[in-house]
Design a binder for these strands. Sequence first.
RNA 1: GCCACCGUAGCUCAGCCGGUGGAGCGCCACCUUGGUAAGGUGGAGGUCGCGGGUUCGAUUCCCGCCGGUGGCUCCA
Length: 654
Amino acid sequence: MGLRRRGKCGWEENKIRSALEMAVAPIILIGENNFIPCAKFPSMRILFIHSDYIEYEAKERAIKNAEEIEEKRERVEECLVSFISVEEGDSNIIGRVVGEIEDVAEKLNVKTIVLYPYAHLSNKLASPDEAMKVLKELEKELRENYEVHRAPFGWYKSFVISCKGHPLSELSKEIRGEKEEESEALKAEKRTTYWYIMTPDGEFKSVDEFDYKDYPNLKKFVDYEISGTRAVKQIPPHVELMQKLELADYEPGSDSGNMRYYPKGKLIKSLIEDYVESRVLDFGAMEVETPIMYDFNHPSLKSYLNRFPARQYQVLSGKDKYFLRFAACFGQFLLMHDATVSYRQLPIRVYELAKYAFRREQKGELVGLRRLRAFTMPDMHTFAADMEQAKADFKRQYEMAIQVLKDFGLNLGDYEVAIRFTRKFYEENKEFIRSLVELVNRPVLIQMWDERFFYFVLKFEFNFVDAMNKAAALSTVQIDVENAERYGITYYDEKGDKKYPYILHCSPSGAVERVMYAMLEKASMDSKKGIKPMFPVWLSPVQVRIIPVKDEFKEYGDKIMTSLEDEKIRVDLDDRDMTVSRKIREAEREWIPYIVVVGEREVKEGNITVRIRGGDVKTMLVEDLAKIIKEKTKDKPFRKLPLPKYLSMRPKFR
RNA sequence: GCCACCGUAGCUCAGCCGGUGGAGCGCCACCUUGGUAAGGUGGAGGUCGCGGGUUCGAUUCCCGCCGGUGGCUCCA
């Protein structure tokens, strides 16, 4: 759990995971829940294997009073094999054990259960008599709902088992008479991870004691983050919206998680990209472009990638094997490895819009625009001479991220802030952390680690909490203290010595698709609250729709259209053979912010009647409307309408 | 990756127990020329996700695959 969503590039995660896996390897059959001897309560240890088949044969008696048996050999297909160690006092908890076994069997959808006495899971076994009694009792109770086979007790047995190998195929459980205690792994995690809420005045509150009354979203975020609580069963609202608004859609001809974007969706996506790019260039980044695929055998990349090939898309080019990038880190680090940099030039920043970054996420995890296998990641790396410089830039980037999300219509409260750091970093930078919380002036989720698990010592994310109470990270910045060395990225200091810089990983917006997801989810929540859903005007694909009352006013409409277009406003005109109210209804359904109806009155008076989304119907001059829109789209990128201006000429994509 | 549910016209969906399919919207044609959220009439659209099996006969039952969604697992 503590390894969730921690780093942007995953170097350290991978390293840790592999270390964990190696450490666990000799006892891998035992799985995650290590068995902890517990003197106080009776407990039963069970190792479950979801098997294609198991074959066992009784060889010779292991104890004097071994069970009398008729058949020495048995083979069972498609079953849940339960290796069981019966401990002292277990006859009292048979009911719970039956429940647990049935629970697992139901999850795996198996109808056959094999009970296999297995002494080696425990060091305080029950007496053979008691164990026999317990096993027979278990068998009897399970028989009510399942086909049950029981391997003979008290014999040395040979066995062959085929494990299905999916994540749930190996489970271990310790069932206790009293309340469940946490596993050793969880305890270890708890020992080193601390969660708090930090209030704007710099106070640490326990996550359990903090009063969430005014911060319901923070509560949802904390629940999601710490306990992984999921709530409702429902199709995420943004999926329906992205289709209905003709923004994006699934592409059956590609791999899952690779979307198609219709003209309007492509426009919004491009505008978001243009916007983020101009922000980071203003911030002082140099835009670069690096390859999307990398050599598995490159020395800097090889070591960890070989351990996790399944996570990457792989590309065969003749005999050579490449992987598709999952962030822009590699390309930029390899580029900076070859650069010659003086301390006088720091901090320097490189930026790339990683289109796409590829991650072969697990299938069950792909949802609409929230999590994809191919996504667009604005990725900036800052190389800083020392921690002071790194912190200064971190703070500026934090402020930039707030502004960026604001311009997408996402304000503090729409998303929750998480700040994560090591204890050491905190001890040395208490005031700095506090200043970050002060900046947002609201409670923030804090995660602190005793040791540095990851490549960074400090990171923040802004997490959007959606209609289904799931949290998704948007903006993030991390201070990376070890990849410079790993990649051999250096600068020359005052004395001419080579030094490793600190590296800041920054995505001011998060993945572009995810920004779209957040905007759509927010719109959906708005509409539930009775607020008309809409995009910020600068992102609205059509900003003004002109509806002539009759064909004869189309010419006037064209004139209005041209003068608005000259002002760099996206306008179209509904020239279809429909009633006015019908056309208005459709324009409303497209979330168009300004609907202009023109007819006899307007032609005569030389003005327009504007229906403002979420507001009134007002009569004004074209210039007035242009001014309103220019004000709302000030300093934002502009792109032309990528569709025919006349609605009659426009195809339906869905 | 696992489990469950779903996949029928461009879209949203109906179709009980097996006998080659329906509605609304959209599209096309005609009528209607309309003033702020659905004007009328008619018409054309389907290899019922794909591949096997059972059957005289499968959209319907069974198996496999693909895709979507939910949950689990996972999440750089």
